[in-house]
Amino acid sequence: MLAMILVLTSVGILSGLILGWVHSLTEGPVEEAARRARIEAISQVLPPFDNDPSASVVDISVSGQPKPFRVYPATEGGRFVGAAVESYSMDGFSGEIDIIYGFDAEGAVVDYHVMHHAETPGLGAKMEQWFRMPEGHRSVIGLNPATARVAVTKDGGDVDAITAATITSRAFLGALREAHEAFEIYKKQQNS
């Protein structure tokens, strides 16, 4: 009996120690990896810039949305050239979708990067490429949500939905509209 308890406790303590050690070892790299992925995505979606957008990040709340949007402003030679907006949608086919959209100074979409999603492979997951494809009216690149109707054609918009994945497409474009709204609010705050 004593041997049993002794063995179980020591195995438990040992494994706790090992895991604590590995955790302390990997904690830094885990954060570093997440930070690097975000910085890469931000640089991908923005027009050329020479500041550090994550240094001047602002949280913008949009009414009716549960979480604030992070806006990363970009400048070149001190002049505002656009911003990346970390947006999200809860209306995905399976769970939350996180996307970073980049806008130029006027608010037209420069590019986007899907950070996290759990959509169906081969269907909803196509959004990673679909909305920048030149065919038909798939691409949202260059569209300005202030002037274009950013919605799927089924809902009277200007953008072709992903074949057989309308829900994902709606979620993607919804996140884009919210991101643009946050962008506009940010611009107004800066000018006032």
């Binding site: 063995v7 179980l8 195995v11 494994s15 590995v22 990997t26 990896a33």
Partner: peptide
């Protein structure tokens, strides 16, 4: 008598370590 729990703890330790290493690298 306690070998199964011990095996489970050992396996879980390696799995958790792997999980953290993969998240990092």
């Amino acid at each position: 008598a306690v070998r199964i729990p011990v095996y489970i703890v050992l396996i879980a330790t390696f799995v958790s370590a792997l999980q953290m290493l993969m998240a990092a690298y």
